[in-house]
Design a protein around this nucleic acid. Structure first.
Lengths: 337, 337
DNA sequence: GTGAAAGCGCTAACAT
DNA sequence: ATGTTAGCGCTTTCAC
């Protein structure tokens, strides 16, 4: 199968030069007579030569491959980020190796070894599940990586995230401005820095507006719709139920909407709901969801950019970027009656 | 960086055997004395050895890498398929290289070369955009591949799809059974076999039920929400507008819902809407969308399975699988008043 | 400026 | 049953 590969030797023959010259043309290109270079280039085109990446990378060069480690496929959240990553990488002629965390929960260390020595020039980690283990060994090996949306976990490494605390604050403040005082909050997975920051923002906003925090009103979720639903049911079962619910992501907010509807509550007349992320779907549900927008695609973009930068200049200090979140007012929230 | 790699030579030293023996243990494992094997295994563990895939694959072996070529990231449709692919591949210790079509529209042939000789043992193509070009060269090179959800385009190659025609038929028949006679249809991208088959099914159902086809009622869409919206607006502007609309995928159906709502039409009282795919979101919109379920994750699963099979047994004849679609009745459709 | 030669880590054919 | 050897395609000294 495909054993008809054109190698630099073939190109060299065709161009009448040594294969070392071909390699030079392919790489830095210094020290090659223009005329020979042209001959080589022509031969490459004629033969349809493509560099064999494994050979190059075996020899110690770049593989032009980036590993993308994600928790789970098929969520809009991940999808948006991947999109940004992919487009940036494509521009720089890098390809993407996809890894899903759930595959490898067991033996992380082995996993990292495979990741780092195997193939890729660098690693992009989107919200990894138990990152402490591998981030440490990545740092030890000085293997280029960037963490996406996981601030607070990895103090020392480069990371791209969003202003989660500010987002949590803004959402809550908005609800307060609408007159709500009993505001339910559904957290994300609490092992994630972003979840904790959103909760922090929520608490800070209440405090700043002189509203006493009520522990009853905070429920732990997991970023999944059923989790949002369940938490909302609990909240609505309270003696003094909230008039507004702030879910730590849009998907859980959809669960809240479900629960509200099931209880015969009109949105936003009987209950205001606000989400986080602004996945495309948020604008499409009914009523359109008020939410905190996170520039997911942009985050992917920037992370990829940063990683490429690190690969080029490994000495450079780790950078942390926080992209701004933004309140998107839609129709799932209204002034308290 | 990570230049501290443990190779089979290191393992061989540690175990006090030749490195060929290590290779044997790693591979078929035949002809190695149990005691030595044990020593090697122990050394591997102690040193944390991992096979260098590029070296192995350069030498002509398997890279244990599958290329996954998708049109676009971040749609629920692709996400579900990828999920199935990934879980099947993970079970068989294969990794995934992700390719997006949009990157490479220009020079497909070069692209295929890169794809096939570069790295991967096989290719999974999800709904490729202009597949004629590369499918041909894949076949020529006898490079293992499986096409997902693209029946009708590639006659000869292995493929996994769904019963699109039957799905189109069932959806239409259901609408007819509810009493609808003016049924609008919004197509997918007409360069895709699945789009044409769904349209076929729609037409066949009308014919079988003695309802004259009205060309006015068929609008071309593109599988995107705005396309569904625009087509729906056109349909509703007709002198004799449809009482039901069948969109060729759920995402366009969401666009139809948007349009209907904007026109003040209640769903399903004033207009029935049916989609295709049954992406998770379909159950979550309001009202929940009646749709034709396509087992996307299962399709990914089966395709990956089939590809692995082909890689093992290349002589085997190309197989075509069609997984059954299924009508999922929810609340966006009702009996015509 | 250009070619020859070594070697990256691995597998497999060939010896023993 | 085990070791030796020759490359896979490439980059990179090192000569000339």
């Amino acid at each position: 199968m495909s054993r008809t590969n054109v190698t630099i030797v073939d190109v060299a023959k065709e161009a009448g030069v040594s294969f070392a010259t071909v390699s030079r043309v392919l790489n830095d290109g210094a020290n090659v007579k223009p005329e020979k270079r042209a001959r080589v280039l022509r031969a490459i085109k004629r033969l349809g030569y493509t560099t064999n990446l494994q050979a190059r990378s075996l020899r110690g060069g770049r593989s032009h491959l980036i590993g993308l480690l994600v928790r789970d496929l098929g969520t809009a959240y991940i999808g948006e980020i991947m999109r940004g990553v992919d487009s940036e990488l494509a521009e720089n002629k890098y390809d993407v190796m996809l890894y899903t965390t759930h595959r490898h929960q067991a033996k992380e260390n082995e996993y990292v070894t495979a990741l780092t020595r195997g193939m890729t020039d660098g690693l992009l980690l989107v919200l990894p599940r138990h990152p402490e283990g591998y981030l440490k060994s990545l740092r030890q090996k000085k293997f280029p990586y960037v963490v996406i949306d996981h601030q607070g976990i990895d103090d020392r490494g480069p990371a791209v995230g969003a202003t989660n605390r500010a987002g949590g604050y803004d959402a809550t403040r908005y609800l307060l401005a609408l007159g709500h005082r009993r505001i339910g909050f559904i957290t994300g997975s609490m092992d994630l820095g972003c979840s904790r920051e959103r909760l922090d923002g929520y608490r800070a906003a209440l405090r700043d507006h002189g509203v006493a925090a009520d522990a009853e009103l905070v429920r732990e979720g997991n970023f999944q719709q059923p989790g949002g639903y369940a938490a909302a049911i609990e909240l609505m079962n309270l003696q003094d139920p909230p008039t507004a619910i702030f879910a730590s992501n849009d998907v859980m907010a959809f669960g809240v909407m479900e629960a509200a509807r099931e209880r015969g509550k009109k949105i936003p007349d009987d209950i205001s709901i606000i989400g986080f992320d602004d996945i495309p779907q948020a604008a499409q549900v009914h009523p359109p969801l008020t939410t905190i927008r996170q520039p997911l695609e942009e985050m992917g973009h920037r992370a990829a950019q940063m990683l490429l930068e690190i690969i080029e200049h490994p000495e450079q200090a780790a950078e942390k970027i926080e992209l701004p979140t933004e309140l998107v007012m839609r129709e799932s929230t209204r002034v308290l009656r």
